[in-house]
Amino acid sequence: MTSDMHLPPAFTTQRSARGILQWLNAPERRGPLLVAPAILTLFLVNILPLLWSFGLSFFNYRANRQAAPRFDGLDNYGDLLTDDRVWERFVTTGMIVAGSVGLQLIIGFGLALLFAKKFPLRRILLMLVLTPMMLSFVSVGIFFKLFYDPSLGLLSWIVGQFTGEPFAILATPAGAISAIVIADAWMWSPFVMLLVLAGLVSVPDYLYEAAHVDRASGWRRFRTITLPYVKGLILLALLFRTIETFKTFDLVYLITAGGPGSATETVAVYAYRLGFQNFRTSEASALAYLILFVVIVLTSLYLYLVNRRDAEAAS
């Protein structure tokens, strides 16, 4: 008895290329083999660095030093969680998320209600309204940096017409946070609008007609017909935008560089500074995982709300 007996015939007695191809092409292997390159690529460029950086977060390592990494256990996490600067950045990020996502929901919902109706030039206007979310972050960041410039910017010029003074919105912490919120909301309100609009156009007309016959008020029609149809999509928009805004880097970096002082420095910008300016590679990795943890908590919260809603609907 030889070991060949445990191998497929294609690899033992008939070693021809045709035999191997036949073996590979078997229906039970075809699917896994077709997705294998994609899985391998995903593993190499995504999963492996993720695991690597997770491991690194437990070490003391700096990318700009020749010293070998030293195991530090949970020290990096402990240091970050007891560092006032990190908490300040989380609070700043929270303020930007709350302001921006809130504004996006209000504006996005209002726009969706507007575009749910038929009116002349609707399609062209819809395309124009969608434009900001199609632009690159760099373009939007530089546009708003110039827009807010107190000497050359349009905002300062408009305010100056009333006050006679240049207006430097980025000069105060509150103003700078508002400036980031406005830029982010300008860019992403169309995304919210698009999701809500998809819900609005799916509401059957006969429900509104029936409500009209029953002489239901506008608010009641909205609460009992419109809202249940779009609620799931609003939650989805809330989830997407919260996660994305939580990771805001580009707009902050371009418009304020985190200033004045550190008033607009989000936790993502701080992670960048830790990793790529201060070369505290391990700490930056640990902070990135803390950010990931918050994002996972937010996602779980969303899934809980959706499941509860489904359970309510079923009952």
Binding site: P150, S156, A168, L170, A171, A176, A257, P260, G261
Partner: peptide, 18 residues
């Protein structure tokens, strides 16, 4: 200085431009 100084964004390129 120009009001951009109040924002902490008055770098070498900004003053050159103005």
């Amino acid at each position: 200085a120009p009001p951009i100084a109040q924002t902490g964004q008055m770098g070498i390129f900004e003053i050159q431009d103005l």
